[in-house]
Nucleic acid binder design. Structure first.
Lengths: 145, 145
DNA sequence: AAAATAAAAGATAAAAAACTCTTTTATTAT
DNA sequence: ATAATAAAAGAGTTTTTTATCTTTTATTTT
């Protein structure tokens, strides 16, 4: 198990990649993104179609088409990407899978999980898609394999 | 997505239940555990077989048989249960799924995830299976549905 | 020894997640 | 208008996870 689903990992890596490649305003094709983040091309295509429908990335068909981002999408918090793909199960909901778990009727790990869930949520709310472009440009960080 | 797999959620709930029901030293059957934690009986049986092989729970066949725990297993940290079922992917490994991600060649969220992973790990190391028995006995916490 | 009990083991089935391939639609450039 | 390009959409397949059912093995009680 990892924190995010595979789909969500690809989604986050893809939006980082697009942000980093479209600062100048131009577009980047699915093939280039897929190789750039080491993901299966057609599977990623499905994911980006979905993110596009939800307005998290922009896309254009035809020659010189591809995926890109505008100032507004670059400022969207990471939590928007995660929620679009994996839903909010990571932030709400019981760590032990109990639907009835609540402050009143808590599971044994309720308090412990509250802290962890809050940490994850805050991290994803504080960070925006565009925040990571500079380090990628500088080669400090990396999205491949 | 939730933090743990369904299997792991059942496993944790089951060990809590067994700990809580076997303080007095007696054994509890798979049927009783399954209804006590709202899990599918045969699926849970598989999980407990595995935990039993790994020494995380004890079991005995035949009349008056069932699952139980001794002092030693009650003191084992929760992380042992999680690692037995879900592996250590939650504590080690990259949040974005990059196998090559490291301090030297980090993914963009490397630092952010380091904190979260450490939180989760510490929580699971600090808490033991037996730590939750009292609250369950008092009816403060709950393992059903 | 025989019957009853309960976990272990084996074999299968259903559902969800991950992944692939093909066709269609929109856009641009010639 | 035509050809070329690239995403969108549709229709699968494969793998993993979750779940069920049946048979076997070990243990206890009578």
């Amino acid at each position: 198990m990892s924190i995010f689903s595979k789909t969500c990992e690809y989604a986050i890596r893809a939006v980082f990649f697009i942000a980093h490649r479209t600062e100048s305003g131009d577009r980047v094709g699915i093939k280039e993104i897929a190789t750039g983040i080491s993901s299966p091309e057609h599977f990623l295509a499905k994911i980006l179609q979905d993110l596009s429908r939800r307005g998290i990335v922009k896309s254009a068909k035809g020659p010189n088409g591809g995926f890109y981002m505008d100032e507004q999408t670059l400022r969207r918090p990471l939590v928007d990407v995660v929620e679009a793909v994996d839903g909010n199960g990571l932030f709400v909901g019981c760590g032990l899978g109990l639907v009835s778990c609540s402050e009143k009727k808590p599971c044994p790990l309720h308090a412990e999980f509250a802290v962890i869930r809050k940490n994850i949520h805050q991290m994803l709310v504080k960070t925006s898609i565009g925040d990571f472009t500079e380090d990628l440009n500088l080669g400090i960080t990396n999205l491949k394999k």
